[in-house]
């Protein structure tokens, strides 16, 4: 049985009558890597700030190790945060930045030196002790910020888009490095990002937020393969979302055609969203496809071509390693497993 280290129960947060978080329920197990994922302004940073103690929830309770900690100030929580813009102290050098928390705890000098050197080794920046913060690159500053939080041996580490300011290549390296670090030292990470790929790569569990409401919580694989609604489907990877009608169990109609699918349990003739991943659509000869269409655009994306196929007044996005000429008439096929049926969201 896994132990819940952090639990948010019915958390609501209002800023001047504006609801930023609406009834958030979420728990984080010990040693888990949980990612809060959503577009900017969805409330993910606010959630993190509530866990860190920088905001108090308007309603609901925050539990840490089974105890309510709503009103505990940040400096009394066994939680450390890595802030979005690193927020390194400009008046202190690398060593002093990392030693900040340890000095507050009044540790022995020798112990501080030992711990700081150990953590610097962990983040791969030995011999950087006396460097000025401003002389470091973005990636190095990022590592120092992580080291400064980790050196306090928190039970939970909160990370607010820590890789947002890094270039793509460095970001990918740091993703793997962070994940390895988390596994190695075995502490709980709560990670905030708007980058869906980052979330899928690193997390054990992903919670997707939109407009202050949790849309779905699950493992990266579950969320990718079984998105709960059209928002999740669209946010995690690219999707074709088509209006459809559920005629019967395993029978759906969209684009004026009836398809077999693997979903059931909807009411008869219910309006639903049909979600099809661009990589699941296969382009065939005009006469062999289930749908007929015309190639409207072809963009080279590196590994694959991204093509827009206009069929039955809908523009399907198709990913394929094969290139088809612009303007040619083609057919589209797909298997029943590739058709995902979602309930229409209320709004």
């Amino acid at each position: 049985m896994k132990k819940k280290i952090i639990e948010l129960k019915n958390i609501t947060k209002n800023f001047n009558d504006e609801t930023v978080l609406d009834n958030i329920n979420l728990y984080v197990n010990e040693n888990e890597f949980v990612t809060l994922l959503g577009p900017s302004g969805c409330g993910k940073t606010t959630t993190l700030r509530i866990i860190g103690g920088f905001e108090t929830p308007t309603e609901g309770n925050l539990f840490f190790d089974g105890k309510i900690i709503n009103d505990i100030p940040p400096y009394k929580r066994q939680i450390n945060t890595v802030f979005q813009k690193y927020a390194l102290f400009p008046h202190l050098n690398v060593f002093e930045n990392i030693a900040f928390g340890l000095k507050i705890k009044k540790l022995k000098k020798s112990e501080i030196t030992y711990k700081v050197n150990k953590i610097l080794k962990l983040v791969g920046l030995e011999n950087f002790c006396n460097r000025d913060i401003n002389s470091l690159s973005g990636g190095q500053q990022q590592r120092i910020a992580i080291a400064r939080a980790l050196v306090n041996e928190p039970k939970v580490l909160l990370l607010d888009e820590p890789l947002g300011a890094l270039d793509l290549k460095l970001r990918k390296e740091m993703q793997i490095e962070l994940k390895n670090m988390q596994k190695r030292i075995g502490i709980t990470f709560v990670y905030v990002t708007h980058d869906q790929e980052e979330a899928l790569t690193m997390s054990d569990t992903v919670a997707i937020l939109n407009e202050g409401v949790i849309q779905q919580i699950g493992t990266p694989v579950d969320i990718y393969n079984e998105p709960k609604n059209a928002f999740v489907a669209n946010f995690i990877g690219e999707s074709n979302i088509i209006d459809g009608i559920m005629l019967d169990d395993y029978k759906v109609m969209f684009c004026n055609k009836v398809f077999t699918c693997v979903d059931k349990g909807f009411s008869k003739d219910e309006n639903i969203d049909v979600v099809i991943r661009p990589e699941d659509l296969v382009i065939t000869d005009e006469n062999k496809g289930l749908l007929k269409g015309v190639i409207k655009s072809v963009i080279f994306k590196g590994v694959h071509y991204e093509m827009l196929v206009n069929a039955e007044d809908f523009e399907f996005m198709v990913h394929s390693t094969l290139k088809f000429p612009l303007g040619s008439n083609v057919g589209l096929t797909l298997t029943p497993e590739d058709i995902h049926i979602m309930k229409k969201s209320n709004n």
């Binding site: 400096y75 450390n80 802030f83």
Partner: peptide
Amino acid sequence: SLIEVSEDLGAN
């Protein structure tokens, strides 16, 4: 955020 970091690191 520098003030918040300080509190986060245990300083009152």
